[in-house]
Amino acid sequence: MITTPRLQLLPCRPEHFAAMLQPDLPALAQLLHVEPDIDWLQQDLVWEVVSQAAQFLTEHPEAAHWWLYFFIHAEYQQVVGVGGFKGPPTQGTVELGYSIAPHFRQQGYATEATRGMLQFAFDHPEILQVLAHTLPGINYSTQVLAKTGFTFQQVIEDPEDGLVWQWRLLKPDYSV
């Protein structure tokens, strides 16, 4: 688990994926010990990806910390977002991403979760850089990335999302 001042970033385990694949999301809420107001997850998560991620994690349990996390508000026990890494490190690089529940946006949770994930990543000696992708244009995600030290690198073509902006933070440039 990754902890920040207000959040607990809980890694998604196979039993969480199994609960997410059920039509009854309150089962997931019960498993996470959080308020059952998590219906927004059905809109934010691509369920085909959840199924593939569940299969991957079953086959590679060592990758759990480089995968999906639930962002749980420590005091209110509510899921305020999800995010994490897009797989284990490759050649010293991990990519992170996140999504904040609509009614928790613009309250600093994305920035706080990103800082927690960066600290986690850079605590691993093999991690030399962290990448992130955003939709093109200035938006809340680009502001979060800039605020946490990332710099814009280039526009790239993502096979699923089309044109995206690539951001990078090098380990020597990172400071808490």
Rank of each mutant, 00 (worst) to 15 (best):
P5S: 06
C12Q: 02
E15K: 13
H16F: 10
Q22A: 14
L28F: 13
Q30T: 14
H33M: 00
V34H: 12
P36H: 04
L41W: 06
D44A: 15
V46S: 09
W47L: 13
E48S: 11
V49E: 11
V49M: 00
V50W: 00
V50S: 06
S51V: 03
A54H: 14
Q55F: 03
F56L: 03
F56D: 03
L57A: 10
L57H: 01
L57F: 08
L57M: 04
T58F: 05
E59R: 08
H60W: 02
A63N: 09
A64S: 09
A64H: 09
F71T: 11
I72C: 00
Y76M: 14
Y76N: 14
Y76A: 15
V79N: 07
V79L: 13
V82R: 06
G83L: 03
G83Y: 08
G84T: 04
F85E: 03
P89Q: 02
T93V: 12
E95R: 10
Y98F: 15
A101Y: 07
R105K: 15
Q106L: 11
Q107C: 08
Q107K: 15
T111P: 05
T111H: 11
T111E: 14
T114I: 10
D123T: 14
H124G: 01
E126F: 08
L128N: 11
V130K: 08
H133F: 09
P136Y: 01
Y140A: 13
Q143K: 12
A146V: 12
A146R: 03
K147R: 13
G149W: 04
F150V: 00
T151Y: 07
F152E: 02
V155C: 08
D158P: 05
G162Q: 09
W165R: 01
Q166P: 02
Q166V: 03
Q166N: 04
L169R: 00
L169M: 08
D173H: 12
